[in-house]
Design a protein around this nucleic acid. Sequence first.
DNA 1: TTGCTCCTCACGTCACGTGAGGTGGC
DNA 2: TTGCTCCTCACGTCACGTGAGGTGGC
Lengths: 284, 284
Amino acid sequence: MQPEEEGESMLKIREFAEIAQVSLSALRYYDEIGLFKPASVDPTTGYRLYSIDQLVRLNRILALKELGLDLNQIVQLLDEGVSAEALQGMLRLRKARLQQQIEEEQAQLAQIEARLKYIEQEGRKLAHEVVLKEVYPLTVLRSWTGVSGFQANSHYARNVHDLLQQLRIKITGPTHYIYHQSAENEDTFLVELAIPVDTSTANHLPAPSRERLSLRELPGVSTMASTVYRGSPHAILEAYQALGTWAEVNGYQIVGPCRKVCLSWEGELQEYLTEIQYPVEKEP
Amino acid sequence: MQPEEEGESMLKIREFAEIAQVSLSALRYYDEIGLFKPASVDPTTGYRLYSIDQLVRLNRILALKELGLDLNQIVQLLDEGVSAEALQGMLRLRKARLQQQIEEEQAQLAQIEARLKYIEQEGRKLAHEVVLKEVYPLTVLRSWTGVSGFQANSHYARNVHDLLQQLRIKITGPTHYIYHQSAENEDTFLVELAIPVDTSTANHLPAPSRERLSLRELPGVSTMASTVYRGSPHAILEAYQALGTWAEVNGYQIVGPCRKVCLSWEGELQEYLTEIQYPVEKEP
DNA sequence: TTGCTCCTCACGTCACGTGAGGTGGC
DNA sequence: TTGCTCCTCACGTCACGTGAGGTGGC
């Protein structure tokens, strides 16, 4: 502004940095992106020279940074004459993001604490990892097995598979079992067998089979708590428990029937690969 | 492990990614860093082939990622046979970091809310930005002005400056005023003038001056709330207020006397540049 | 001449996302 | 031949931190 004033109290970058408590590289970077340029640059040496009253602007920058705005936003706020409303908008956006982030981090914290507690009590690492995922709708052939013993179910499932193969119906995914809680008795389950099939080939189904097998749409679930484990289906109880405590720790509610997905059932029982899924929803 | 099993149910990368709900690029990246490699790679096409039972490991990875561990830590945990204690250590570290981060974010949130409230009430952006910084110890010549009017102080300070110049004592920084609350009366202040000087030249001070000027160490302060503003010192009250509300919003307590630093006092009053500092501490 | 402060590249960060350009099987 | 899926680079992200290699003033 007033060139005749220059030189009277210009500060070299290190002096200015020390007063303002910022790093040299930060000042150089702000210069580079045009956020905060030195009052003048010595034409022969290239030295950046700052005047003390530039502190006002720099402090404004630092304060806005403290609020979590990024440098691009700050450039806009300071140089592009953004109105008070625009600042309001940025702050509201930042506030919303921050609130969500805090929530997530608190959930993470609870999870970590639960793990630590588990390790202290059991002296071991966790056996079953739980992940959240989305599952998509599937067209399946369904059937009620009416029985709940593992052996019987498994036998029944093999029979159905054989039948489908004979009928040249194309199987498109792993076999599901869905455990519906009985309306009368909480402790008994109605077990539904569901085999994903290719819709176009499923019409081969002859009438007598239709009595026991019917086509239905297995709905997708946006948040499914899932755990995959290898081993005998007898160990399934542990997986259920892991899912239960996981839901509790993370503040989720179980909102639908459990699904058991038989990812691999060849070879020894110990080699079986099974996924247990529970539809969940965040508690309000 | 069992090469004769290959090919029976290998999944291409997209199929596996869909089941596991991860992105293609994530899978390729995990492969690259050696965290999670496909069960096999087709030698002619280079296609990555995954077996369904790799889900167990991938889910373990995803679960650990959910806890906020980075991929390097996860590699160590899964592949370098780290003990339960090491996992404990990582989780404790993560927990501590997370707790601190949440605290900081909550402070940020409070600050944002205060700003938003301010804008709504005043319809304007904030005038005084407050930043936290550290100030270092200074060797100063001090004197009690004994008066509190701005004009008188300013006049007095100029006289002292002139004197120092005559005595060839080197001034090394901006003039400070320190406002000590009087022990008897809370509403009156004892004003201390403090001028940073070069220790080696300060010994020129003759005896008669020593009655009013004495050398002392102005202590450093690790957390100083500071606001810099340009303008007439009459507007100083606003700056005080800004600092006060800032301290309240952010949960800081004022733990020492206020300092006024005269960064620039040339030209018009409106051009003066002044910094107000308060030593603060986080409330417990 | 030796230090000191400053300068300008260039590269690394962390976990991928996003093209560009090319190949193999239907 | 046309699409589709896969591949491998290479670059960008965000706000700097950290050398490397060089210059100017005492």
